[in-house]
Design a protein around this nucleic acid. Structure first.
Lengths: 222, 222
DNA sequence: CCGCATCCGTTTCGATACTG
DNA sequence: CAGTATCGAAACGGATGCGG
């Protein structure tokens, strides 16, 4: 049953918290920042949240205009959740919030790391570089494929299969996060079996290095 | 008893919510954005929060490095809560969050409006204006005095008494919010007894107009 | 009066089980 | 796959108590 309590405060900050301040709500939004997701994708990305909680939050956020529920085309015909345009405008706010937390003096308690978190970090930490040639990548993280397009140090990320990837990488979010901090570990990760790659390996390396050059912003504890 | 649960997620966004994601926590931070406040000030500004909740949040936020507890000089000798430098860095995040909420299609449920909310709105909506002469104001809102300094369309706000105010205004946050939307109602508010003014009335009017020229950002529902 | 701590009923959360 | 149902635990919210 959806939560209905309000701070009863006219301030914009309080009103924002009335809308997205419930527990898990902003993490659901985070998971949708890079594109539509199915219920099960969210469930996997947020293993700490129980299914009824996710269902409640989705209903609330839909009713409040932050996201919408949409049916995919046949033959898939499944339902996905996607941010409305207004919901998408939370992106800079969330990135700023994540950046703020990186300065915490407290030790990190973390256990999980979602694909979206790391990909937001990848995209956010990429720095413009006119020299960098364009390339398309296929990233497979936890049973889900992502399309990454990089050009001139700018990185785009979408859920789903790329058409003609130059290179691909299959790993888990934690390993990818490590590789983004230190691309030099790519060979070792492959040797360990923690990562599997294919296609244009130098191009893959350039992708990792694009991010490694930037400062930590969201994905990890830097 | 302080809350201790965590999302267990390495993402910066999740870690931020581990720190300031508990109910009322960000509204406590909001109240401290303009300067230190005593427990009772917070209690009055957040009438919807029970006193034990406020005490819990203050302890948690102190332990997490967002704010600190400090003893004032004699003869006051009372305790105040103030943001740490790191806590103060939440300001742009909160203002962005508040700005986002103003676009909500949902009707406002609000009942209360704190002095800090309106003053953040005043300060944030002021627009640079080289013509505007400098002035100092005393604003009294709900039994508490604030110092406002305006110059060239830039507005500074601090809690406490000004030294030599050019003008003063005593009213409640809701009335001040209305006046910021429409300074033309100042005369009527004074006639109603909803506001009491003194000193340089034209200067006061300029202050209200400085804000009225800008777009709504945080304080009200615009 | 200020600054909490304690008590207690209600709401929300979180884990697991279950259904179309 | 995409949720709903159930239930104990925790957090919230309001009232009251209490030392300084």
């Amino acid at each position: 049953m959806p939560t209905t309590r309000s701070y009863g405060d006219a301030c914009g900050i309080a009103r924002a918290l009335d809308i997205v301040g419930e527990r898990w709500a902003l993490l659901v939004v985070r998971e949708l920042l890079l594109g539509p997701q199915r219920f099960t994708d969210l469930r996997r990305a947020l293993p700490g949240a129980s299914t009824n909680l996710i269902a409640d939050r989705l209903r609330e956020l839909e009713g409040r205009g932050v996201l919408r529920r949409r049916q995919l085309q046949a033959p898939a015909a499944s339902w996905v959740y996607e941010l409305t345009e207004w919901g998408q405008e939370l992106e800079p706010v969330l990135l700023a919030l994540g950046g703020w937390a990186l300065e915490t003096p407290l030790p990190p308690p973390p256990v999980t790391l979602s694909a979206t978190s790391v990909l937001l970090f990848l995209r956010g930490s990429a720095r413009p570089d006119p020299q960098a040639p364009p390339a398309t990548y296929r990233l497979e993280l936890g049973d889900r494929a992502w399309t990454v397009r990089a050009a001139a140090g700018h990185v785009e990320v979408r859920p789903g299969e790329p058409e003609q990837p130059d290179a691909w990488l299959r790993t888990d979010p934690g390993t990818l996060n490590v590789l983004l901090q230190d691309p030099g570990q790519l060979d070792r990760a492959v040797a360990d079996g923690a990562a599997v790659t294919g296609g244009d390996r130098p191009a893959l390396r350039r992708l990792l290095e694009t991010a490694a050059r930037g400062p930590a912003t969201v994905g990890s504890q830097g």
